[in-house]
Simulated assay, not measured.
Amino acid sequence: MTSVTTPREAYGSHVLADLGGIGADLLRDAVVLETILVNAAAVAGARVLSAHFHHFGGEHGVTGVVLLAESHITIHTWPEHRFAALDIFMCGKARPEEAVAQIARDLQAELQNVRTCERGFAPPPR
């Protein structure tokens, strides 16, 4: 059996956030959502590699991903329910909780349900 050494950079936090009570028009605007998520990555101390957002047309929502050197931020929106689902995974010194807080502020979310899961095998010393 071979032993595998886990790099310290592989340890991180994975945050799932459900945000509600958001204006429907905002949840249909792929350009604004991309700006909000890219800004949140910067606030969290992450480095953006690329981003791709897609509006499903008409009254439908948006799905988007911001690829980070530290992993990713994704969003899926349901304007008809005034709801957005976020998935943020960041490793290293990036701070995903700060990204969630910034996104919630920018979306003016009235409701938040945030869950965090630590990922990896050996957390780095703090």
Rank of each mutant, 00 (worst) to 15 (best):
T2S: 07
T2M: 08
S3Q: 02
R8Y: 05
A10N: 02
Y11H: 15
Y11L: 05
G12Q: 03
G12V: 12
S13T: 09
A17W: 13
L19G: 09
G20C: 13
G20S: 13
G20K: 10
G21D: 14
G23I: 03
G23L: 14
A24W: 06
A24D: 12
L26G: 05
V31P: 02
V31N: 07
V32P: 00
L33M: 06
L33R: 08
T35L: 06
I36M: 05
V38Q: 07
V38T: 06
V38K: 14
N39S: 08
A40F: 08
A40C: 09
A41R: 11
A41E: 01
A42W: 06
V43Y: 05
A44P: 01
A44G: 03
A44V: 03
G45S: 03
G45L: 02
A46Y: 06
S50F: 08
H52R: 13
H54T: 12
H55Q: 05
H55L: 01
F56C: 09
G57P: 04
H60F: 13
V62N: 14
L67R: 07
E70N: 03
S71T: 06
H72W: 08
I73K: 11
I73W: 04
T74L: 11
I75Q: 08
I75L: 15
T77R: 15
W78S: 03
W78L: 12
W78Q: 03
P79T: 04
P79S: 11
H81V: 11
A84K: 15
A85G: 12
A85H: 15
A85C: 08
D87S: 14
M90E: 00
K93G: 07
R95P: 01
R95I: 11
P96H: 09
E98T: 00
V100N: 12
A101G: 06
A101Q: 05
A104Q: 10
A104Y: 09
R105A: 10
D106I: 00
D106S: 13
L107V: 00
L107S: 11
Q108L: 07
A109P: 10
E110S: 08
L111N: 15
V114Y: 08
T116L: 14
T116H: 04
T116W: 11
C117I: 14
G120C: 04
F121C: 02
F121R: 03
P124A: 07
P124C: 02
P125Q: 09
